[in-house]
Amino acid sequence: MRSKKFILLVLIPVFLHVLVFMIIPIIGSGVISFLDYNPLRDNNTFVALENYKQLFSDGDFWKALKNTLVFVVVAVAANIVISLFLSAIITQFRSNRTRSFFRMMVFLPCIAPLVASSVVWGRSIYPTNGGLINLIVTSLGGKPLNWLGDARYLMMSVILFTLWADVGYNTILFSAGMDGIPTEFYEAAAIDGSGRWNQFWKITFPLLGRTFAFVLVMTVISYFQMFAQFNVLALKNGPQNSGLVLTSYIYKLAFTNKNMGYASAVSVALFVIIMIVTLIQQRLNKVDWEY
């Protein structure tokens, strides 16, 4: 009983933090979504479900939702594949020092703030004239492209940058998960004549289940909330709003259009989407084993 009290006491600051900075704002946002809200005004009109009705006829909202889903699906899938691949390679090294070195190298881009690295990519790697990628393309005899100003390439460019900036984090997690798999399984498989590829699919991948479930849920949630690189790389949301995602749309509605009630309705929609996707993932990724 005493230990239970101690645990509860220790958890109070965390509960408070979650309550004050997460639950209350979420409830507040829900309340604001029913108002024609301007925080500077003393009286804000109750508009019932008007803001939610507007969502259905708002072309920009659907465009932002489509872009967000494309970004999340493609970037998360690519991130998982690349980070699994990298961690599988890193785990092959027997020396701890070598493994640590490569982990550090892969993790380095994660340390830089997204805004700062987005600016560097936007100003030195992606520009049409003098950008690194176009210099490489032209030196190979290709035709330079407008990576950020052409609606066809903008999303791909943002995804490429996101992968560079973020893939190291999941690599570390997968790598730690792989290190935790008992070597006996691999030894037994090797005795039975199983090859490396077979070992990866039959031993590593299934036993990474818990790590995989965690990585997938966290990556999906964070990618739904990505904002910085879109804000920097997609100039005013890009041509024909090709770089408009839900987070940047919320920011634009709230701080440019000063329409906080509607911005809150879009936030609630994003919250519901993330919650549904997360619940589905949790159901699909249920893991009932241990080793």
Binding site: G122, R123, S124, Y126, P127, T128, N129, G130, G131, N146, W147, L148, G149, D150, A151, L154, L233, A234, L235, K236, G238, P239
Partner: peptide, 10 residues
């Protein structure tokens, strides 16, 4: 060209 609005210029 449109890069000043669409993006692509540094």
């Amino acid at each position: 060209n449109l890069t000043g609005l669409a993006g692509g210029d540094a």
